[in-house]
């Protein structure tokens, strides 16, 4: 049984202009100890999926319209609030893109870690503070004991993210959801944080759902990847093989667009024509068809179902790139 299994998740937002189908039938599973990246451009529904898992989406004005989110066999969508709270921050923890707004500005780092601990664990104040120091050491915070008394605004961006990771790890979660954890950071700091997340995950054996728009981050961090487009998973599989030979034309287009360093400088970049469709009025067929170089009339008829492509690969496309001749040859 996978640790987390999302089946047919639909999350909608009611707006004045109509129903925004931000997540429109997402299937995804995560095994224990595994890192799965959920990648997509803005508006693809990747963050909404993550927020839906912890049912944080109601606060953002959304509504889970259908599907199941099975965590360790229990459907998160059917839990009462008390049981849900027992899972949040305890067995599933989350870290956010902007640590400055995710941390409480009027509490010291130490207080926040202690609070996270005592929320789910029967632990004394003194012991909790000792554990907080250990956690800060774990995330390689420089001079951890002194940092307990620091307030978020006094820390650098990298240290804030470390503090947030320490809070998330306080109760040794089975699953860590990381929503664009390095997007607000500089590249050299990003490298440090990604390195830290990889190391911690291996050491603690937790699973990670990594939400990102950056395919480079996916390549360096995740075991498996799911590519989202207009609220649906269009392709998923192991990172290595999927990036070497993408089957879905969208995945391929994305990869070509970011592999800028492989091209002669100043040359024309491969682009995906057009733009993302409005989530208010999705086309009846494949949402990518209007931008797709391989689209046929069949693509407009109905949405393609997810099909197996071997080696744990899945894709939702009527005309995938499949043969090794057509596919990207591994370098």
């Amino acid at each position: 049984m996978p640790l987390l299994e999302i089946r047919g998740l639909q999350t909608w937002f009611e707006t004045r202009a109509g129903t925004v189908k931000a997540v429109n039938g997402v299937d995804l599973s995560i095994e224990r100890g595994e890192t799965v990246a959920l990648v997509g451009e803005s508006g693809s529904g990747k963050s909404v999926t993550a927020y839906s898992v912890l049912r944080l989406i109601e606060a953002a004005g959304g509504r889970i319209a259908g599907g199941e989110v099975l965590f360790d066999g229990t459907d998160m969508l059917r839990l009462d609030l008390a049981s849900l709270r027992a899972v949040r921050g305890n067995r599933i923890a989350m870290i956010f893109q902007e640590p400055l707004s995710a941390l409480n500005p009027v509490q010291s780092i130490g207080t926040q870690i202690v609070e996270a601990l005592r929320l789910h664990r029967d632990i004394g104040l003194r012991a909790a503070r000792e554990r907080a120091v250990e956690l800060l050491e774990l995330v390689r915070m420089p001079s951890p004991r002194e940092r307990l008394e620091e307030y978020p605004h006094r820390l650098s961006g990298g240290m804030r993210q470390r503090a947030m990771i320490a809070i998330a790890l306080a109760c040794e979660p089975d699953l860590l959801i990381a929503d664009e954890p390095t997007t607000a950071l500089d590249v050299t700091t990003q490298a440090q944080i990604l390195d830290l997340l990889r190391e911690l995950q291996g050491r603690l054996g937790m699973a990670m759902l990594l939400i990102t728009h950056d395919l480079g981050v996916v390549a360096e961090t995740a075991d498996r990847v799911a590519v989202l487009y207009a609220g649906r998973v269009v392709e998923q599989g192991p990172v290595e093989t999927l990036f070497d030979a993408p089957a879905h034309p969208y995945t391929r287009g994305l990869l070509d667009a970011v592999r800028i360093e492989e091209l002669p400088p100043g040359s024309r970049l491969p682009e995906i024509p057009g733009m993302v469709p409005s989530l208010l009025a999705l086309p009846p067929g494949c949402a990518f068809a209007p931008r797709c170089p391989r689209a046929t009339p069949a693509c407009d008829a109905g949405p393609p179902a997810m099909r197996a492509g071997g080696e744990g690969r899945l894709h939702a496309c009527f005309n995938p790139w499949l043969s090794t001749v057509e596919g990207r040859v591994p370098a």
């Binding site: 650098s156 700091t189 490298a191 440090q192 592999r259």
Partner: peptide, 26 residues
Amino acid sequence: RALIAATPSTSPAARRRERLMLQGDL
């Protein structure tokens, strides 16, 4: 060199690049 090494890349060649991890923050 650190900047080049820190840029995450999808290309297999880049993943084998020499890693030069910087310590600390700006």
